[in-house]
């Protein structure tokens, strides 16, 4: 019953294995064959047609794409890349916005001083704030350009009419997202820009207290009309700050996110990016 002793490799063979690269191949094989790796990654990296398909189809993020597209859809001259850039900028505002939320309280007494704290004391706070604001402004511009491009290429024509309507909703929600965020710094710029903007709701026909025909609607007053519903009072004060915060961070992003899912899905269902047929 002589048990075979495991062979202890000598230093010389070990060095030889490192030099020839054999050791790394063994380690690589061990990792790639392990249960953890195989459960995480379903395919190799070799550039084969099968892997090109799997690369898209088995990745939750990339599978927004079809696995194959028309050659013409690659032309930047055609798409201006504006839809994708808009989505990227939206993601940037989500990431930086979540970081800002850790430091910002939407309360009249605190909001402005939290801004100062963010700018002067929080590591990279100013950078996060800048990126959030500039990405939001850039997103407004790119979404307009995207819409202009879609119009110029006639991409709203059948069968894509419905997706154009979704897109108009998304443009509107982009503006509303930006507008509700505009109040949050709680400085003079914010307060008066939002005062000017929301003052328009006073003049809503029937439902605004200064609007035409409001005298025919019972109960419309400066305290209870279309505008006070938006800002939670008769002027832009702390209740408005809280309302705009909730709208900005939760309500509108959820709706816009849901519409984005529909928008991207419909691109594929309507036959991919439009092109000459």
């Amino acid at each position: 019953m002589a048990t075979k002793k495991p062979e202890i490799p000598s230093l010389a063979t070990f060095v030889e294995k490192i030099k020839s690269g054999e050791l790394f191949e063994e380690i690589q094989k061990d990792i790639l064959d392990s249960q953890i790796w195989k459960s995480s990654f379903r395919h190799g990296y070799a550039d084969t047609p099968r892997n090109r398909v799997l690369q898209i189809a088995s990745n939750v993020w990339l599978h927004l794409h079809p696995v194959k597209i028309h050659r013409h859809a690659l032309r930047i001259k055609f798409t201006w890349c504006m839809g994708g850039i808009t989505f990227l900028l939206f993601l940037s505002t989500v990431v930086t916005g979540v970081i800002l939320m850790f430091y910002y309280r939407p309360v009249g007494e605190y909001a402005y001083f939290d801004m100062k704290y963010l700018q002067y004391d929080v590591p990279f706070g100013m950078l996060m704030r800048n990126m959030h604001r500039w990405a939001a402004h850039a997103m407004v511009i790119t979404v307009w350009l995207h819409m202009f491009r879609v119009f110029l290429t006639g991409s709203y024509k059948p069968p894509r009419e419905f997706n154009w309507v979704i897109g108009v909703f998304l443009v509107t929600f982009t503006l509303l997202l930006s507008f509700t965020g505009y109040l949050l710094p709680w400085d003079q710029l914010a307060m008066w820009a939002v005062t000017v903007g929301t003052n328009m709701a006073r003049a809503t026909p029937f439902l605004g207290h200064e609007g035409p025909f409001q005298e025919f609607v019972f109960g419309v007053s400066p305290r209870y009309d279309a505008r006070s519903l938006l800002i939670g009072g008769s002027l832009v004060g702390p209740p408005a700050l809280l309302r705009f915060y909730v709208l900005h961070c939760i309500f509108i992003p959820l709706i816009a996110g849901a519409l984005m899912i529909v928008h991207f899905w419909r691109i594929r269902k309507d036959g991919g990016i439009s092109g000459p047929l």
Binding site: R129, N130, M131, R133, W134, A138, W186, Q188, L235
Partner: peptide
């Protein structure tokens, strides 16, 4: 976006004053 954000700061005026 990163370069732009490093170079140019977002505006912050004095505290809101109704």
């Amino acid at each position: 976006l990163t370069v732009w954000s490093i170079v140019i700061d977002a505006p912050l005026e004095e505290a809101a004053n109704p």
